[in-house]
Design a protein around this nucleic acid. Sequence first.
DNA 1: CCGTATCCGATTTGATACTG
DNA 2: CAGTATCAAATCGGATACGG
Lengths: 129, 129
Amino acid sequence: MSAAHTDVPSVLAHELPRPVPAAEFAACPVTEVFRRVGDKWSMLVVIVLGQRPHRYNELHRAIEGISQRMLTRTLRGLEADGLVDRTVAATVPPSVSYSLTPLGRSLLEPLSALADWAVAHAGAFGRRA
Amino acid sequence: MSAAHTDVPSVLAHELPRPVPAAEFAACPVTEVFRRVGDKWSMLVVIVLGQRPHRYNELHRAIEGISQRMLTRTLRGLEADGLVDRTVAATVPPSVSYSLTPLGRSLLEPLSALADWAVAHAGAFGRRA
DNA sequence: CCGTATCCGATTTGATACTG
DNA sequence: CAGTATCAAATCGGATACGG
């Protein structure tokens, strides 16, 4: 490491150039995103739906640890944020399919950057002291 | 977007190729990372420290919304995860400087990918309905 | 099959006051 | 300056039971 600090690419360097006014941080988009998708299940659902659309009970089985309550809440949140589409087929019995919107699919890529980092540093991270 | 679904680059595609066994998801590194850094303040602190090292009260002022309690807790967590270094100068009055470790600095980059996404879609996201 | 309703414990955060 | 202690509030999450 030669330079004092890593040069930060992209918007971070652009948006946070100096001692930070702080008030602007409250509205920081990164924080916003994490506050919305950073809960216990949202990202998992996004990733699973990234493979293919799933019906409600498919999701319930695929994620397994999740309760109906949280699955519904999570899906409603993702729906409200425009990341997930809910499609109802008026059949008997009823069938509801969930899929990613284009916006939701676009989130998969930055997510993978974080996934790469997580995998690469899984050893150093994770173990507290 | 021509294909049925976005082709997911990197580890996401590699680690989650099929209907998902789900048990393996519990140990998903991405989830791990989010569970640790996905709290209310951690990422903000990492980003602020990415600009330059800060002392305790500098951080307190820079982030502004944060309470002393949460600032300390957040710093201790980041320290335990090897993302932040704490350096005490035995002066009068005492001075404690916090800075990113190499690991912490490396996290800045995937974070910026997410930041780019957040900025790019700030309009579509954020507004619920 | 696809949810909703209710209850309750666990975790997280904030406000405030105090200390070496 | 750099924290800790304590209390209360809000939020999150799981279990269970019920309804369209």
